[in-house]
């Protein structure tokens, strides 16, 4: 289990984390989402002991993070955002080196490396020097390296960054396989879509604090309910506006150039009823859909950022 309690971290005058509190239970695949520069890497480095807290506490299975205790180091496997390399080493030599650093038994190292390379689908690169590895293979190698000593908790800092969809899918499979045996996976990122089918729990980091957290299904339900419905019509805009204003479930109407955005409080059935009302009124519809959740939507609400051209509440 990982517990962050009132963690504060700043770099000079720049406050990165303020009153950051979070709990990650054993066996969860936990995603911490945030925009760039929100502090995700700082959270990972605090957890792995590479940075010191200004105040607060981080516990990993009741051990304080950053104490350098071997038992704690063995429990964690860290995948940084950018992994370096030794260009003249082959993939096998690189993994063998790190296996030696973890004092794994020499007789078991080779088997373990081969198994992990097969799991990641990069066995064919085993004897290639690291300087020729493409980005996707490097990222998988970074994850494999962190798994060598079978840590109970895998910490990944934005593992999907700048990767193509296929590689992202492959990495998700690797992580899901790894989490099957009750291990904890803690990862950060900024693309909500990457986490929806991977994580069991999510939290959102914004301006140094956790603004939302919970099980993935519940989070997406909440996000979805808060997102506007987008309507595009051909003519009869005034009629549409009157119809919408009469409906008590429509909480606000915003006029965009070619679209109308409404905040609608209702379930899927009630959405369908509204759609039927619009069609029955003879209004020609181009589109009627609920906007998908994205980071900017979620965080923009918190920031109370830009408002639309016209807002009715």
């Amino acid at each position: 289990m990982i517990r962050f309690t009132n963690v504060k971290k700043s770099f000079g005058n720049y406050l990165v984390l303020e009153d950051f509190s979070l709990e990650v239970e054993t066996g969860q695949v936990f995603g911490l989402l945030g925009l760039s520069d929100s502090g995700k890497t700082t959270v990972c480095k605090l957890l792995t002991g590479l940075l010191a807290l200004d105040s607060g506490e981080i516990l990993v299975d009741d051990m304080k993070a950053g104490t350098g205790v071997r038992r704690l180091k063995r429990r964690l496997g860290y995948v940084p955002q950018v992994m370096g390399s030794y260009p003249k080493m082959t993939v096998f030599e690189f993994l063998h080196f790190f296996a030696s650093c973890y004092h794994l038994e020499e007789s078991k190292i080779r088997g373990r490396i081969h198994m992990l390379l097969e799991l990641a689908g990069i066995r064919s690169w085993e004897n290639s020097p690291m300087e020729v590895l493409p980005r996707a293979v490097m990222q998988k190698l970074s994850i494999v390296r962190a798994m060598l000593h079978e840590p109970k908790i895998l910490v990944l800092d934005d593992p999907m960054m700048s990767l193509d969809l296929r590689t992202v899918a492959e990495i998700k499979e690797i992580l899901l396989d790894y989490a099957e045996d009750g291990r904890t996976v803690f990862l950060t990122g900024s693309a909500l879509g990457d986490f929806s089918d991977l994580c069991t729990h999510l939290s959102f980091l914004h301006q140094g604090r956790v603004i939302r957290k919970g099980a993935v299904s519940r989070i997406f339900q909440e996000i979805s309910a808060q997102n506007p419905i987008v309507i595009q019509v051909e003519g009869k805009r005034t009629a549409l506006l009157s119809l919408l204003k009469e409906d008590h479930r429509v909480k606000s109407i915003s006029l965009m150039e070619n679209e109308i955005h409404i905040q609608f409080k209702g379930d899927a059935r009630e959405e369908a009823e509204l759609l039927k009302k619009i069609v029955d009124a003879g209004i020609l519809l181009h589109s009627f859909y609920r906007e998908a959740g994205n980071m900017e939507n979620i965080l923009g609400k918190e920031d109370k950022g830009e408002r639309s051209l016209f807002s009715y509440e």
């Binding site: 792995t48 350098g68 964690l76 950018v82 992994m83 370096g84 390399s85």
Partner: peptide
């Protein structure tokens, strides 16, 4: 500079 020091510090090596 090769971003390896952090990874080495995370291992069992003191």
């Amino acid at each position: 500079e090769e971003h390896m020091l952090e990874l080495l510090l995370e291992t069992d090596l003191d």
